[in-house]
Nucleic acid binder design. Structure first.
Lengths: 292, 292
DNA sequence: ACGCAGGCATCAGAAATGCTGATGAGAGTC
DNA sequence: GACTCTCATCAGCATTTCTGATGCCTGCGT
């Protein structure tokens, strides 16, 4: 049984006429005749009653014709679905978040993606910039947000927005922090960040350029944990300026008065997936959300 | 798009492995590879992600695979339906009845047919033997019951049961009928039957063999009409012995005391349809009903 | 009654297509 | 770094399918 045989079958049934069906199908009459002959041999029974005026379905043919139409319909559906998938990407996007979803405008992203492809599923994973880069490289995530530059060869990045980082510490250290210079700050207890994190490299660059190395006593790999540890008096670290000012106003942290330094929020993904429809859709939604 | 391509597609998707799929399908690995290549070209997008360890569906491939499975399922259904139709005939049987449905055991026939083929539709048509033969010959009926022999070349017949015909007439003629011999009967008024009816030929044979020709005043072509006319005094005719005895007991007719003569109830159908599944099914049901 | 026209089936040759076995490139594994 | 396993590719063969010509049958009109 082949598709062209079913097409001939259904067309003849519709026309009650083999020759007319052949014309409609743009193939020769003997070809159509052979299709039906093959089908009838395969099924072991005639599908049509031949007469001098044309062909009429047998009762069995009538039943089988209905099923043949179902098959051809589903085949058309197959092609239609395939065509749809060319425009509307499908699949699961696993996104690494280095801040909370609200800050990263995830609900806007959701909305953007929903309208360009209803079959995109989004999985979110909370982490910190360095870990996110690592997970995207190994394929455990498809893309993610990071603060700072990404130097990986395997990844591409899109800069979404610029921010400033400020140094904050526990309220208990308010006086030490307020009057400190960079060297004194480096002497206070710091909350460490995993080495492979661009965030961490910024911190290093900031102090190393002055020949300083802050003392780290605890290492944390989740932004929420860092903030929580600053508040509970463990040590100093960075916060985005806006967050820092707000936390200071609420009396949760002590803000170092020295000026902040700029840092970019970027979105990263695997270079070799730059041309997949899904990646394109996500990047499009990302641009609409952050640059629109 | 061809069935074998879809089969390869689905099998690879199931195995996550092209070579294994080829083995399972009993075709060569390059063949399966070509199938997928053709499908991917037709759809304009990859269905699988190739790796050194095998193949994995792309998100689009996953969606299309489900539809491919639907198509293959419907194709299997097509074959299954075809196979079923070999055993279980379908279609409409138009049956001519020369007596009421109860006498001809139509409800038994229904039951028999229902169990051997649920898709058989039965259409009943009341008439008289001669007309039934004619309608079966012209194709307006598929088969029918007749009393007497069928001499048509185009038809075949199956004898179902033997009966006896008795001569009956109006109660008003009771005395004339009771004492009559064959010649006197022929002189009484008769209800005629159309010439081409085997029933009619029997009547002719019965009288002609003695050189007699009964007078017919009215011709009827429905058994119920004949009985009704006998009762209302129009003339004489035959009734099946059982019917005749009962009608006499009820005082509806006068029964001629001479002996009845045998007549067969037969079932006729077109010879050239003897081998169709539907005809076979009907004949099988008929045998079970009348000879079982 | 007979020829004609229009049905579908059949046939042989040409064209197209699918299949196979050998081979190659690339990625994991030991 | 050699080995092995993946899938892709290629050339040649085998098969299938298509076409155009032809034949047979039936219904219709003269």
């Amino acid at each position: 049984m082949e598709f062209y045989q079913l097409r001939s079958f259904v067309t003849i049934a519709h026309e009650n006429h083999l020759t007319r069906a052949a014309e409609k199908l743009h193939i020769s009459q003997p070809a159509v005749s052979a299709h039906i002959k093959a089908l009838e041999e395969e099924l072991g029974q005639p599908l049509f009653v031949r007469s001098a005026t044309g062909m009429r379905l047998t009762p069995a043919g009538k039943k089988l014709c209905r099923q043949a139409e179902v098959i051809l319909y589903e085949a058309k559906e197959f092609a239609r679905i395939g065509k749809d998938l060319l425009d509307r990407p499908v699949g699961t996007v696993r996104i690494g978040l280095n801040r909370n979803a609200e800050f990263l405008r995830i609900s806007d992203l959701y909305r953007q993606l929903r309208c360009c492809g209803p079959d995109i599923e989004i999985v979110l994973h909370q982490s910190i910039s360095g870990t996110i880069i690592h997970l995207v490289e190994t394929g455990e995530l498809d893309c993610g947000f990071i603060l700072g530059d990404c130097e990986s060869e395997e990844l591409r990045s899109l800069t979404l927005a610029g921010f400033h980082l400020r140094i904050v510490g526990p309220v208990a250290l308010e006086k030490e922090i307020a009057g400190a210079d960079l060297a004194m700050l480096a002497d206070l207890p710091w909350i460490g960040i995993p080495d492979d994190c661009p965030y961490s490299r910024i911190m290093e660059r900031y102090f190393y350029s002055c020949g300083l190395q802050p003392k780290t006593e605890v290492v944390a790999d989740q932004q929420a944990a860092i903030v929580s540890m600053i508040q509970s008096g463990v040590g100093l670290n960075f916060m985005l300026e806006k967050e820092a000012l707000q936390a200071e106003k609420l009396g949760h942290v002590a803000l170092w008065p020295g000026e902040g330094f700029p840092i970019a929020l970027s979105f990263v993904w695997r270079a070799k997936e730059s041309d997949t429809p899904l990646t394109k859709a996500v990047l499009g939604a990302m641009r609409a959300t952050w640059q629109g």
